[in-house]
């Protein structure tokens, strides 16, 4: 992220309560992830130790520290979705996109396809349990999902078999 954009974000958050989370949230929204360079620059500008910022960014699943693909697919792995077959959806998705997901040492699951088109992540609950199993692509929710629906859904985002 360039310095001017970061300055603008910092300027929008001047109330002390929740300031850092607000700034980090905007960075995440604009860039799709929080880069090390941006975090270091932010640390300098707001006078908060990088250890504290890194602690925050790794605590909340909302933040991603690695670059993501053009489209982010989040599969809900909450209790209701899990029971209703979220694992089968994740496996089907892995098959379609040709990736193998694995939990990283930070406990987050995030994997990006080689062509950087898609990133697959999991979340613990969207709060949309009535439509379980649920997945989200770039903010659009897809409920009552089945593995068979996936090619059609992915097609909307430029995926080809």
């Amino acid at each position: 992220m360039d310095e001017r954009t970061l300055d603008a974000i910092i300027a929008r958050h001047d109330a002390p309560a929740g300031r850092l989370l607000g700034i980090l949230g905007e960075i995440q929204n604009q860039e799709g992830y929080v880069s090390r360079e941006t975090l270091e620059m932010l640390s300098e500008k707001v006078g908060v130790r990088i250890s504290q910022l890194y602690g925050l960014a790794t605590f909340y699943s909302y933040f991603t520290l690695r670059p993501v693909g053009d489209h982010v697919i989040t599969i809900c792995m909450g209790t209701a979705c899990h029971v209703k077959g979220a694992v089968a959806i994740l496996e089907a998705l892995e098959g379609l996109l040709g990736i193998k997901s694995d939990v990283t040492d930070d406990g987050k699951l995030s994997i990006t396809t080689i062509d950087r088109k898609f990133t697959v992540e999991i979340a613990r609950c969207f709060g949309a349990c009535s439509m379980a199993p649920v997945l989200r692509i770039d903010g659009n929710l897809y409920g009552y999902a089945t593995p068979e629906d996936l090619p059609g859904i992915l097609g909307e985002y430029g995926w080809k078999p």
Partner: peptide, 15 residues
């Protein structure tokens, strides 16, 4: 500082 959360929590330097 603490890094990560829950069972993955560790203490170390950033990155």
């Amino acid at each position: 500082n603490f890094i990560n959360r829950g069972p993955y929590t560790v203490v170390n330097t950033p990155y």
